[in-house]
Design a protein around this nucleic acid. Structure first.
Length: 579
DNA sequence: GTAGGGTTAG
């Protein structure tokens, strides 16, 4: 805050000095020009920048290297890439600094391919790279997870001996972490101790969090404080709290929250947003609301985190109310806001309301719905059993549904017993595209597993490979539960098992889904208390039905948090209303 | 004059 203010003051002074220079009739040097142009970037004023540009043209200084580079940088940093590019192309001589401005400008505007193309062009033009250029290029590689390109940049870095530069080392660690190549990330980290600082530590942590390697993320955190003697910062905490949100690891989440307060990062919007998310995903809505209410000026992301936890907990109405609050607060919703609202409506079965929001986003906010929004509408109609309308909707779409859209539609068809014949062969033709998208990695296909916390220990159960000291007892419990729920009216639904096998084996496989194993374990080891089971993928329809019966026959409250939402089972019913 | 890490979604 103070730095920002004094910086602004400094730049106001530089404007003043520049005007006095003009009034006195002295002609400014290209360096004086460069410094006032930089002031425009800090003050975010492209208007003054444009005036300086025309003045520079008048004085014949616009072609000077320093003035030119700074003008290109000014346009790109203010987000005017078209003008930056036009000006840059006309510059008679370009150096590493002016190229860096362009590479960085493209990266900041989200066009990472253009950033890397610029880097390539620069090399082809024979301009020597420096630490600034490679850092910018590596950061574009990170965003694209372009590990191959990143490795080429890495070899250039090694050739020029730039790895000892802290920012370059950090950029390398981050590039490998984001590409999921943790081995290479660790390698850079270990080979260059001079690059071990809070930035590279945070990149490593974040890499592990993205790979769902939570324990490794936490061990880096411990190492950072103990061995590294480095203080964690807001970046470190936002990654770690996110890990807790992903895993619904409440105990660790609470401990991190305490440290966030201790280190004074509780005013950071990033950290607060993810704390709201973490508490919501652990089922503690009151805590989410409390953390949110303490945020002084919530950004649109912070605003989004609240309705999203309402939505996953099946409170679609509260999500919509929060949206109204957001609008009243004068915060402009973004594309994700509408995904959240549509999801909330879809999970609570509010079809008409959802459709209203879908049309409202374009009419009122001029936001053109993307494939993701269309997918939500497919889900909205599909879950409500309005399959024909869903199909009409798909046919009326200006683009092909994405993988989510197809999965929602096919899921709804399966649940409603609408099989291939009725769905139409054309659709199944298109469905092949889904597999392709899944192979591309834009959708994760994970092996399913469940986990349950008993005391301070987390017990994990996979569908096939798992071992547990109390395995025998758990299987006995599972068998007796199956008998009990069958007597209560449960009928196994084997339609959902895609594997080609006989029906008995299918029942067996369903019966041993990880969430049921986890519930059986919780029942034998934790009498009396409500059971909270967490699962990394969606609960299947058969398990959903089985758990309803289990809650009935054992008379216990069972909460299952899957990857999309919470299911509160009690007395043979679920809070999701089977949506 | 130019450079490095984090948040919300299906």
């Amino acid at each position: 805050m103070v730095t920002g203010f004094s910086q602004n003051l400094r730049f106001s002074e530089s404007f003043k000095a520049f005007s006095q220079m003009r009034i006195a009739g002295e002609s400014p040097t290209q360096f004086a020009f460069a410094s006032v142009i930089r002031a425009c970037v800090v003050l975010g004023s492209v208007e003054i920048g444009r005036q300086l540009h025309s003045l520079a043209l008048k004085l014949g200084l616009a072609c000077e290297l320093f003035v030119g580079s700074n003008l290109a940088d000014m346009y790109s940093k203010c987000g005017f890439m078209v003008e930056a590019c036009k000006f840059f192309e006309e510059m008679p001589s370009k150096d590493a600094v002016s190229w860096t401005s362009m590479i960085d400008g493209y990266a900041k505007s989200g066009d990472f391919e253009a950033a890397l193309l610029s880097y390539q062009r620069m090399i082809n033009d024979g301009i020597g790279v420096d630490k600034y250029v490679v850092s910018s290029a590596l950061s574009a590689c990170s965003a694209l997870k372009a590990c191959q390109f990143g490795k080429c940049v890495h070899s250039t870095v090694v050739k020029l001996g730039l790895e000892v530069e802290v920012a370059v080392g950090n950029a390398l660690v981050d590039m490998y972490s984001k590409s999921g190549d943790m081995e290479s990330a660790l390698n850079v980290f270990h080979v260059h101790p001079e690059c071990r600082n809070i930035v590279s530590y945070s990149s490593l942590i974040n890499g592990y969090v993205e790979m769902d390697e939570i324990e490794k993320a936490f061990s880096v955190f411990v190492d950072l404080q103990r061995g590294g003697g480095v203080e964690p910062n807001q970046f470190t905490f936002s990654s770690l709290v996110k890990a807790c949100a992903n895993q619904a690891a409440l105990e660790q989440g609470i401990q991190l929250h305490a440290q966030v307060i201790k280190f004074n990062f509780d005013r950071d919007n990033f950290v607060s947003s993810v704390l709201v998310d973490m508490y919501g995903k652990c089922g503690l809505l009151d805590h989410s609301i409390q953390v949110f209410d303490e945020i002084a000026n919530p950004t649109e992301v912070a605003w989004n985190s609240l309705p999203s936890v309402f939505a996953v907990n099946g409170l679609g109405n509260d999500a919509l109310k929060t949206f109204s609050r957001m609008v009243r607060a004068g915060v402009k919703p973004n594309a994700i806001t509408f995904i959240i609202l549509l999801t909330g409506c879809s999970h609570s079965g509010s079809v008409e309301e959802g459709l209203t929001y879908f049309y409202f986003m374009e009419k009122t906010y001029g936001m053109v719905p993307r494939a993701g929004h269309y997918s939500c509408v497919i889900d909205l109609l599909g879950r409500a059993g309005r399959l024909e309308e869903a199909e009409e909707f798909i046919n009326s779409m200006p683009m092909q549904p994405n993988a989510f859209g197809w999965c929602f539609f096919l899921g709804a068809c399966t649940i409603r017993g609408d099989k291939e014949g009725q769905t139409g062969s054309r659709k199944w033709e298109d469905f092949r595209g889904v597999r392709k998208i899944m192979r591309d990695g834009s959708m994760k296909k994970l092996p399913g597993y469940s986990w349950v916390d008993i005391g301070n220990k987390t017990h994990t159960f996979g569908a096939k490979d798992w071992s547990h000291p109390q395995k025998k007892k758990i299987y006995e419990k599972l068998d007796s539960l199956l008998d009990q729920i069958k007597k209560a009216g449960y009928v196994p639904n084997t339609d959902l098992v895609l594997h080609d096998m006989d029906d008995n084996s299918k029942v067996e496989l369903l019966h041993h889904h990880s969430e049921r194993i986890a519930i059986a374990f919780a029942l034998v080891s934790m009498p009396g208390k409500p059971i909270i089971v967490k699962k990394n993928i969606r609960v299947c329809l058969d398990c959903h039905s089985a758990i309803k019966y289990i809650s009935l026959v054992v008379g216990r409250k069972i909460i299952v948090r899957d990857n999309t939402r919470f299911h509160h089972f009690a007395d043979g019913l679920c809070s999701c209303g089977d949506y």
